[in-house]
């Protein structure tokens, strides 16, 4: 039973009980004019009133019991979710340990090669770049699993706070600029208006959704990636555009499905868990917004403007009405 129907049952029950009580109390007043001097009409009204009262009282009792059970169950669920998150943190930390060592050694090798003053063979640099690129992959993978655990918790609410949306986008651009450069891609971002101001949203969710979209774009773009932040009266929009080969129209409806991978479409084959876009879409919805995709597939013709663009739209102010 939903929260809403439980509340309706409680209000309905209480109203019935009140009507019943009023009927019992007023039974002499109602019954007297109908059969003066006799109890003939007073008693039935009182009986009906009493019946209505008991019905209402039972409905109220049941709804209160349900609400209290739900609250207890909810509290258990929340603590379970917290425990899961704590375990997950430890797991992520320990799993990251060998990766941090590998990454550290790789950077040390790079520094040592630089110190020799000789030109490092391109093949070696490419191998080192390949190792370095596993770091953002790992970061996103761990974060995706954490969000997936969080999404399973039906009682979890977005943590709405004042957020400098332009700063969030800027940080993501910083993270992906070196990766884009290594892959020979030009990544640009901008916001309009320049002084974007604060929005009330879940900063972690915004960061996570856009990170997934930009990560996706760096995998498929041919040469260009654009991130644009704009706003209208009620929403702010983040559009992540890439000039990749595009997605077939028949596949577009499936891109947000859990487990959908680009290997299923005409796009280039790359590593993918099929979780990123599913999570991005689910998180967007939980934050009161939506995520849309628009794409034009490559036809082999040079003039063909093939691209894929994801647009995230979130409310400018997602605080509950009472907090505004």
């Amino acid at each position: 039973m939903s929260d809403r129907s439980s509340k309706l049952l409680r209000i309905g029950g209480a109203s019935l009980a009140a009507i019943g009580l009023v009927l019992v109390l007023l039974s002499p007043v109602i019954g007297e004019p109908i059969s003066p001097g006799s109890l003939w009409w007073i008693e039935p009204v009182a009986y009906v009133g009493a019946g209505v009262f008991f019905l209402g009282a039972i409905a109220s009792f049941v709804s209160i019991q349900l609400a209290s059970r739900r609250e207890k169950h909810g509290a258990d669920d929340r603590s379970w979710s917290q425990v899961t998150q704590d375990y997950f943190d430890t797991f992520a930390h320990d799993m990251g340990r060998p990766l941090r060592r590998i990454l550290g050694k790789q950077r040390e090798v790079r520094a040592l090669l630089n110190e020799t003053g000789e030109t490092t063979p391109r093949m070696v640099t490419e191998l080192l770049d390949e190792i370095e690129q596993q770091a953002p992959n790992f970061r996103l993978m761990i974060e995706n699993v954490r969000v997936l655990v969080d999404l399973e918790d039906e009682y979890a609410q977005p943590a709405v706070e004042p957020v400098d949306a332009a700063a969030v986008i800027l940080n993501i651009a910083d993270r992906y600029l070196p990766i884009a450069r290594e892959r020979g891609l030009d990544l640009v971002w901008w916001c309009e208006p320049g002084e974007f101001g604060l929005v009330y949203t879940d900063a972690s969710a915004l960061d996570h959704v856009v990170t997934n979209l930009v990560d996706n774009a760096t995998k498929f773009a041919d040469g260009q990636i654009e991130i644009r932040l704009t706003r209208n009266d009620a929403h702010f929009l983040v559009r992540v555009w890439d000039d990749g080969p595009g997605i077939a129209e028949s596949h577009l409806v499936h891109v947000f499905d859990r487990g959908w991978t680009p290997e299923l479409s005409a796009r280039r084959e790359k590593q993918s868990s099929g979780l990123g876009l599913f999570i991005a879409s689910s998180l967007s919805e939980r934050c009161g917004g939506d995520l849309l995709v628009e794409s034009r597939q490559s036809t082999g013709d040079e003039a063909n403007d093939h691209h894929t663009a994801f647009t995230l739209s979130l409310p400018l102010d997602n605080r509950p009405a009472a907090a505004k």
Partner: peptide, 28 residues
């Protein structure tokens, strides 16, 4: 990983004017 719980808890314990930011240790 810096989930909403941790960030919010840390930020809430700080002065609003403080400039504190978080970065993953695996960042370049």
């Amino acid at each position: 990983t810096h989930g909403p719980y941790r960030d919010t808890a840390v930020m809430a314990s700080l002065n609003v004017s403080s400039s504190v930011d978080f970065i993953d240790k695996l960042a370049s």
